[in-house]
Amino acid sequence: MTASLEHDDLANLFLSLGALQPPAELHGYAAGFVSVGGRITADGWLKHCIDLLDCETPNPEQSEALYVVYSSALESMESGEMSLDLLLPDDEFDLDQRIVSLGQWCQGYLTGFAMAGKQQNTAKQKAYSPDLTEAISDIAAIAQVSADEQTDEDGEQDFFSVCEYVRMAAMTIFLECNGAADNGEEQGNPPRLH
């Protein structure tokens, strides 16, 4: 497996780079980019990072750490084990901060999905299934989330449920967009999200 990602380590890297975006958004971007079939070299990914983060060119060590964001998203989605983990702050952070990060992850996902989708050959593009369209709409709605005052146990449970839904939606989108090409045949109905 690729080197592990830690939210706090990546946040510190972003601070040193003067990056304007949070780690969750970059990880979401990587997952969205990969979901629609985007594949890229380390140098190509670095260019995406510089544009998205609005930062100076990182040194080689920082570049390698940024590439881990992309490679870990790709590896977890290609594993076939539904092992994608959203890169969000851990439970030590207040619930409202984690909710905001989830919205940022979803925003990044949508941006990455759109960027890779634009690069696809038009002849390769196909109409998306109703399930995929619904999943993208749901992720777009979640991207608009804002923190509220609900910090009780129900709020924690709701947050966990929404994170799990987003994780499964991203995997389902990946399977639909990449499954037929990987199997060499048209794929039937993708797994239902709910």
Rank of each mutant, 00 (worst) to 15 (best):
M1W: 07
T2L: 09
S4M: 08
S4V: 08
D9C: 05
D9I: 05
N12Q: 15
L13M: 05
S16D: 13
S16K: 11
L17E: 03
L17N: 02
L17M: 07
P23E: 07
A24N: 01
H27N: 12
H27R: 03
G28T: 04
G28M: 08
Y29W: 04
Y29H: 03
Y29P: 00
A30F: 01
A31Q: 04
G32K: 02
G37N: 04
G38E: 03
T41I: 03
A42H: 04
A42G: 06
D43A: 14
G44S: 07
L46Y: 02
L46Q: 08
L46H: 01
K47E: 15
H48N: 14
C49Q: 01
I50A: 04
L52D: 05
T57H: 06
T57A: 13
P58K: 03
N59V: 11
E61S: 14
Q62G: 04
S63I: 00
E64V: 00
A65Y: 00
L66Q: 01
Y67M: 06
V69Q: 01
S72V: 10
E75N: 09
M77L: 15
M77V: 09
E78W: 05
E78C: 11
G80Q: 09
E81D: 13
E81A: 13
M82K: 11
M82T: 10
L84V: 03
L84E: 00
L86Y: 05
L88A: 06
P89L: 03
E92G: 09
E92D: 12
E92V: 01
D96L: 10
I99W: 12
I99K: 15
I99E: 15
V100H: 12
S101H: 12
G103F: 01
Q104W: 08
L110Q: 06
G112T: 00
A114M: 06
A114Q: 10
A114W: 00
M115H: 14
K118W: 05
Q119I: 03
N121V: 05
T122V: 15
K124C: 08
Q125H: 10
K126D: 12
P130I: 08
P130N: 11
D131T: 15
A135E: 07
I136Q: 09
I139A: 09
I142N: 00
A143M: 01
A143S: 14
V145S: 15
T151Y: 10
D152N: 14
Q157A: 14
F159V: 05
F159I: 07
F159A: 09
F160T: 08
F160Q: 12
S161G: 09
E164Y: 06
E164N: 11
Y165L: 14
Y165I: 03
R167W: 01
R167C: 05
R167I: 00
M168W: 02
A169M: 02
A169S: 09
A170M: 11
T172W: 02
I173R: 05
F174E: 01
F174P: 00
E176Y: 03
E176F: 05
N178S: 03
N178M: 04
A180D: 12
A180I: 02
A180V: 01
A181H: 09
N183V: 12
N183I: 13
G184W: 06
G184S: 07
E185W: 07
G188Y: 04
N189A: 13
N189D: 14
N189C: 03
P190G: 04
P191H: 02
R192Y: 12
R192C: 10
L193N: 01
H194Q: 14
